[in-house]
Every structure is written in structure tokens, then in C-alpha cells.
């Protein structure tokens, strides 16, 4: 995890250390009894601070991006629903086993569109986080999501999924109840749902647990989200034999997990801009950008007939992959 220290009410990420020095100076000036006399200096320092932060965020390493994506104050699915959506009607039942709070589902209106919203939820308070397993869903979460997506299909509602998970939950009960089967069925069914699907990785896009609600007509990532086949720590532990700060950094770079990497590799369709210093510093602005993208994409997709949507979705997936012809057949 990132070395985080509390300064005021904001967590500071490791790469933000240079800003802390400025913060200290600003605080010193503010604490003076005659601080009004230093108004000009204060304003100057504040401007420098803003510039410095923006510069830092322009030069993030992939590992830094992972840290931003996991920032404790980064907006989550429930926050975006609150900011973008009027009249959200949460639906809880998976009709099978139980309600998994790690995936939120329900009807909502975004802009002019009535839609079905599905999203991972990590939880903010310790209690919430434990209930949500830090955003790691169980099979019943994936089954609830599919049940609600089929509901949307039945009534011709477009589907929005918000992805934010380190991965599907790796536990005893999750295995017993068929974690792999639940995700596999979602992949198959999402690929043939006869209604528009738009997906956005808003924070962490960890492997199959992310993809389990991530098959769509349009897939985007927020600028500082990550999306990959495995978490950098998991990859480091396996391929570098050990997960530590150095190997995590190396794995994050190797995995090409940033939004820009995924876009240039043709694995997602769009990158949605975030406020220059991260969604956690200005959630409202982030929500506005996200909402614009969603409203536009759904408007475009609504023009297609359901069978055209399914055909295009299939063709899009069908093209992904890079292979070569080796010249000689293997010895057989």
C-alpha cells in the first residue's frame, strides 16, 4: 500500500510528498496572528501548490496511478449515483442466495435516460468496507447484477456498469457458491444482451472480477483508473517471486494497466478526463465528466437495433488479440 500520511483531512500519496513542504509553509503563514499581512505571499504559495500538484499528476508512473485509483477519498459507485442520478431505486435481490453489498444495482435516471445501474461498491467507513469486502464481490453479487441486467433487457432499458474492484473475492464460501461459474455466465450473457451496455472503470479494474460486469458496447476508463489481468501486487508475487515496493512498481509498469495504455492497445474505447489532480479532489467535476460521457454514449447506442448491438459487440471482442503465424508446424 502507499505510504499515506494525514495532513488536514486529505490523504497524501507518496508521490505528493513535495506538496507537503509547501503545505507546511502555507500553514505556518496562516497560523501567524498577523496572517492577513501575508495575503500576497499566501496566494502565491497556493498558486505554486496547485501548479506543482498538476505537474505531479501529469507525470504519474503506473504505480502512482494505482495509488490514485485506490485513494480513500476517491468517489465510489454510490457517490456517483448520488451526484449523477435522480430518483435512484435500488434493487437488492439475486433470487438465489443473498444480497451482496459489494455490487449495487438499481433503476436510475441520468440526464434524459432511464437506465439500469450496476456498480461495485467498496464502502467508505470501516464497517461498510468490511460488509462490502472492500469491493470484492461474491458470486451472489455477480448473479444479482445479471438478474438486474436481464430485467433491463426485458424493459428495453440501457445498462450502465461502474467497475471498481481489486478482484472477485477469493474465499471459501465464494468458491463453494461458484465464483468462476458466476463470472463466466455473466461474460456469456452480457455478450448477447439485447440492450445497450456502457461500462466505466471508475477506480480499480482487477481481473475477472472487473470483467464480470465489464462486457459492453462501449467501455471506458476514468483517466486515473487502472484495468488489468491481475493486480500489480499479485503479478509481482508470482512473476517476481515477491511483492514489495520495487517489484510492485515494476509489475505495474509491465502490465500496461493505465487508461492511456488500455486505450492505445485497443482494449477500451474511451478515456474519460478527470479533474487535473484526481477525482478525489473534485468529485463533482469528475461526476460531470462521467455523466456527459454516459449520456452521449447511450444516446448513440439507442439508435441501433438490438440485434445490431449484439452483432457489433461480438465483432468488437472477436478482434481482440495479437497472434503470429510461426511458419513451421510444431512437431507432432
Amino acid at each position: 500500500m502507499a505510504k499515506t500520511s494525514r495532513y488536514g483531512s486529505t490523504y497524501t500519496l507518496a508521490f505528493e510528498q513535495p506538496v507537503i513542504e509547501l503545505d507546511k509553509q502555507i500553514q505556518l503563514l496562516k497560523d501567524r496572528s498577523n496572517s492577513a499581512a501575508y495575503a500576497d505571499e499566501l496566494a502565491g504559495l497556493e498558486t505554486n501548490r496547485k501548479r506543482l500538484l498538476e505537474k505531479l499528476y501529469q507525470e504519474l508512473t503506473p504505480w502512482d496511478v494505482v495509488m490514485v485509483a485506490r485513494h480513500p477519498q476517491r468517489p465510489q459507485t454510490s457517490d456517483y449515483i448520488q451526484m449523477m442520478c435522480h430518483d435512484f431505486c435500488e434493487l437488492h435481490g439475486d433470487r438465489c442466495f443473498g444480497d451482496d453489498p459489494a455490487i449495487i444495482t438499481g433503476f436510475g435516471r441520468i440526464g434524459p435516460h432511464k437506465i439500469m445501474i450496476i456498480g461495485h461498491q467498496k464502502g467508505r467507513t470501516t464497517q461498510e468496507k468490511i460488509a462490502c469486502h472492500f469491493g470484492c464481490a461474491h458470486p451472489e453479487g455477480y448473479r444479482k447484477a445479471l438478474q438486474k441486467m436481464k430485467l433491463a433487457e426485458k424493459f428495453g432499458l440501457p445498462i450502465l456498469t461502474l467497475i471498481d474492484t481489486p478482484g472477485a473475492y477469493p474465499g471459501l464460501k465464494a468458491e463453494e457458491r461458484g465464483q468462476a461459474e458466476a463470472i463466466a455466465v455473466n461474460l456469456r450473457e452480457m455478450s448477447r444482451l439485447r440492450t445497450p451496455i456502457v461500462c466505466v472503470v471508475i477506480g480499480e479494474g482487477g481481473s475477472g472480477g472487473a470483467l464480470g460486469i465489464g462486457v459492453g458496447d462501449r467501455v471506458a476508463m476514468l483517466r486515473f483508473a487502472w484495468y488489468s489481468v491481475i493486480s500489480p501486487e499479485g503479478c509481482a508475487a508470482i512473476l517476481w517471486k515477491e511483492s514489495n515496493e520495487q517489484t510492485n512498481i515494476a509489475a505495474a509498469s509491465a502490465l500496461a494497466l493505465t487508461s492511456l495504455d488500455n486505450l492505445s492497445n485497443g482494449l477500451i474505447d474511451d478515456v474519460i478526463p478527470e479533474p487535473p489532480t484526481g477525482a478525489h479532489r473534485d468529485p463533482q467535476a469528475a461526476a460531470k465528466q462521467l455523466q456527459m460521457w454516459i449520456v452521449d454514449r447511450i444516446r448513440e447506442l439507442k439508435r441501433f437495433k438490438p440485434e445490431t448491438l449484439v452483432q457489433r459487440r461480438y465483432e468488437k471482442l472477436r478482434k481482440i488479440g495479437e497472434v503470429a503465424l510461426a511458419g513451421t508446424p510444431p512437431s507432432h
Binding site: 463466466a184 461474460l187 456469456r188 450473457e189 455478450s191 448477447r192 481481473s207 475477472g208 470483467l211 465489464g214 462486457v215 484495468y227 488489468s228 489481468v229 491481475i230 503479478c235 508470482i238 512473476l239 509491465a254 502490465l255 500496461a256 494497466l257 495504455d261 488500455n262 492497445n265 482494449l267 459487440r313 461480438y314 471482442l317 472477436r318 481482440i320 488479440g321 495479437e322
Partner: peptide, 26 residues
């Protein structure tokens, strides 16, 4: 499981194979 060295490309093979099987099922 999925091959880490092809990262996102590997991950998307899960969706690709599943979508082919959806058609096969149809």
C-alpha cells in the same frame, strides 16, 4: 488461468471465448 504477460489482451480472451460460446449456444 489468464496469461499475465499479455495483461489486458489475456483478460479480454475470457470475454471473447464466452461471447463465441453464447453464439454457439444460440
Amino acid at each position: 488461468g489468464a496469461r499475465m504477460m499479455e495483461s489486458g489482451f489475456s483478460l479480454m480472451q475470457m470475454a471473447k471465448t464466452a461471447s463465441a460460446l453464447a453464439r454457439f449456444d444460440d
